[in-house]
Simulated assay, not measured.
Amino acid sequence: MNIKTKLYKEQLKEWPEMGHHIMAQFDDEKVIVYQSYRPEIGNFAFQNQYFGGAFSVHRMTWIKPNFLWMMYRNGWGTKVGQEIVLAIHLKREAFERYLNQAVYSSFQNDIYGSKEEWQAAVKNSNIRLQWDPDHDPYGNKLVRRAIQIGIRNLEIVKYAKEDILEIEDISEFVKEQHQFVLNNELDALLTPIEKPFIPSNKQTFKLLKLSGE
């Protein structure tokens, strides 16, 4: 597995407790995001290193850079249709491109002049963004907010084949770590190393209402 991990409880001491943060594992080349699929789609993506086959480019796909938010969403890979958990090594430039284009899924009166202006932005954008409560390993809500990004139209075509450096199937790792959660053994729980991601575009930083700098 090409993801760097660390004990959850050690990371917990370093993570911000509140605010809007893009928690992710990243470097100068890539940002790791997570998705879960039924075997037909997930296995194809892992084996071929791109999204194809039963994967549809005609519907929006959502990516999540935060591992524990993904685990909350897919029930640690136990939900039907989300059994195959993928770690997608996304080109950093692609991730930044998504952020720069992102339009909120819900109306924000401090960003858009009117609901009509927002609706027009949604219609014309290929990228959606949504802030949700982050979650702990047990699925409990946190004060800190976690981001998820929706991709569609021309951008989903690029995402499926051009924007990805590597696709890993981390389903077994997820199952192993889930056992520690089920047994209340968080001292042994490993999670991917994550820290707040800061977009290079200062206007995007402001638009996303990110906490920090």
Rank of each mutant, 00 (worst) to 15 (best):
H58G: 05
Q49P: 08
W62V: 09
K115E: 14
S56K: 13
K64Q: 03
L142P: 00
D136W: 02
F205Y: 02
H58A: 08
N2M: 13
F46S: 09
R152I: 09
V33S: 04
E168R: 00
V85F: 11
E166L: 15
H21S: 15
A87Y: 05
I170N: 03
N201S: 03
K115T: 10
K206H: 11
R38W: 05
K209Y: 02
R92I: 03
F197Y: 12
V122N: 12
A45Q: 07
M18I: 13
Y104K: 14
L86K: 06
K206Y: 08
D27P: 01
K13I: 11
Q47D: 14
D28Y: 03
L90N: 01
N74P: 00
W15F: 10
N201P: 08
Q179T: 04
Y8G: 13
Q108M: 07
Y8A: 06
K206V: 12
L68P: 00
N153M: 13
N43L: 05
G113D: 11
K158L: 15
L7A: 00
D132R: 11
I32L: 07
H89F: 11
Y104T: 12
Q82A: 09
A102V: 07
L154Q: 14
W76D: 05
W15S: 09
K175L: 11
K4S: 13
H135V: 09
R59D: 09
G81T: 13
L207V: 02
H58I: 00
L189V: 03
K202F: 09
Y159V: 10
E168L: 14
D187N: 14
D134Y: 02
Q11R: 06
A121F: 12
P196Q: 12
E14Y: 04
N124P: 01
I170G: 01
D163R: 00
F95I: 08
G212N: 05
E117V: 07
L190S: 00
E194H: 07
V143A: 05
D136V: 11
Q82E: 12
I22Y: 12
V103P: 00
R92M: 01
S125F: 14
K79G: 02
R97H: 13
K115H: 13
Y104E: 15
V122W: 02
V122K: 15
N74Y: 01
S211R: 03
A87C: 03
I22K: 03
I167H: 00
F51N: 01
H135Y: 02
Q25R: 09
F107I: 05
L12E: 05
Q119M: 09
A188F: 14
M71Y: 03
K158I: 08
A146I: 03
Y98Q: 00
D187R: 07
W69Q: 08
H89D: 14
H178M: 15
V57K: 10
Y50E: 13
L142A: 05
A87G: 09
G139V: 02
S125L: 14
F26N: 00
P196R: 13
K79N: 14
I149Y: 01
N124Y: 06
A146F: 04
I41H: 07
Y34K: 04
I88Y: 08
F173Q: 07
F197D: 04
G75N: 09
A94H: 04
F107T: 05
A146E: 04
V85M: 07
L129D: 11
P39F: 13
A94E: 01
F26Y: 10
V174H: 01
W62E: 04
D136C: 06
Q203G: 14
W69G: 00
W15E: 13
